[in-house]
């Protein structure tokens, strides 16, 4: 235990923790929204993240022919390259997420209400995707070219505010506000809220369930895809097991904030990002990956509905 690192670098750890937290928040959307409407842990969402991270890098290397040795870009070229990476990752992740629902969950939903069955199917999808990528990449990690020169903008209380982490925070906030407006102000968003409130009654009221559910998976996938882009921008590396490593932490974030609750996922994600950063400073980075699990167990034991309570509207009876 070494608390000196924590006190010395408190501001910089906090800043990094918040950036990591926003990545968790965006991945957590894929869990929390689906859980909201279907009461199902969307296990395969972690692999959606993994595919998004590979897409981000492949857009840069295959479409724009950047290599690890390339110089960072500037000006207009930088903007459209990074936008292409972001949009590419979001589209692939969104489409994969919708396809997963159709292939792995839709049939089961029509036939049985046994949650174990859907859950096992979801685990199957997750394994298939990560194994397919493991074999395609021969387990090798894939590095990303550095397009954005990571200059320090300002230094606050000894913390270097780098341009990439600031970018993550700003864009994530924009995306989350858009999502919040979508869910609360639009007709489709109202449908999502209705289904998460009462699945059976909303069907009786004439809501097209399949459409709502596909939309939910699409939004979850888009958020997860954006998270993958931000992750690559900051950490510049991915591998086939990245979904397992980050996806489950993001799930923890969703549970921490109250699964099914979008604003809860926001609080949970930021909290988890900070806790992980502080914990790895005190205990050493080798313990970082189990911090999330320990927190998950503690939350479920003492406050199983999370900080903000479960569900978009109300927890089931």
């Amino acid at each position: 235990m070494d608390f000196s690192i924590l006190t010395d670098q408190f501001a910089s750890l906090t800043f990094d923790g918040i950036a990591l937290g926003f990545i968790y928040v965006l991945i957590a959307l894929g869990y929390t929204m689906v859980y909201g409407v279907l009461r199902l842990i969307n296990f395969a969402n972690s692999e959606v993240f993994m595919l998004g991270s590979f897409t981000t890098i492949l857009v840069a290397t295959k479409l724009f022919h950047h290599t690890i040795e390339s110089d960072p870009l500037t000006g207009f070229k930088l903007v459209y390259t990074m936008l292409a990476m972001l949009i590419g990752s979001m589209i692939v992740s969104g489409v994969v997420s919708v396809l997963i629902e159709i292939v792995a969950y839709r049939r089961l939903r029509a036939r049985t209400s046994n949650r174990l069955t859907s859950l096992i199917s979801a685990i199957g999808v997750s394994i298939v995707l990560s194994e397919a990528v493991r074999m395609a990449t021969s387990s090798a990690p894939m590095g990303s070219p550095r397009l954005l020169d990571k200059i320090t903008l300002v230094t606050i209380w000894g913390a270097d505010i780098r341009v990439d982490t600031l970018l993550v925070i700003v864009f994530a906030i924009i995306l989350l506000i858009t999502l919040d407006l979508f869910v609360n102000k639009t007709r489709l968003g109202k449908g999502i809220r209705a289904v998460s409130m009462d699945y059976d009654t909303s069907r009786l009221m004439g809501i097209n369930l399949n459409k709502i559910i596909s939309t939910t998976f699409l939004i979850g996938g888009l958020g997860t895809g954006a998270a993958a882009f931000f992750y690559i921008t900051v950490y510049e590396m991915t591998r086939f097991s990245i979904g397992f490593e980050l996806g489950l932490a993001a799930f923890t974030a969703a549970v921490l904030g109250g699964i099914g609750n979008i604003r809860g996922a926001f609080a949970g994600g930021i909290a988890l990002g900070l806790i992980e950063m502080y914990a790895s400073a005190v205990l050493g980075t080798q313990w970082r990956s189990i911090t999330a699990f320990v927190i998950l167990i503690l939350v479920l034991l003492f406050k199983p509905n999370g900080i903000f309570g479960e569900s978009l509207q109300q927890a089931r009876v």
């Binding site: 049939r107 089961l108 685990i123 199957g124 999808v125 394994i127 194994e131």
Partner: peptide, 15 residues
């Protein structure tokens, strides 16, 4: 490819 195979087994059996 055995883990891939087992993943497929889970999906196919459940469906």
């Amino acid at each position: 490819a055995r883990m891939l195979l087992f993943g497929l087994v889970l999906i196919i059996m459940m469906n």
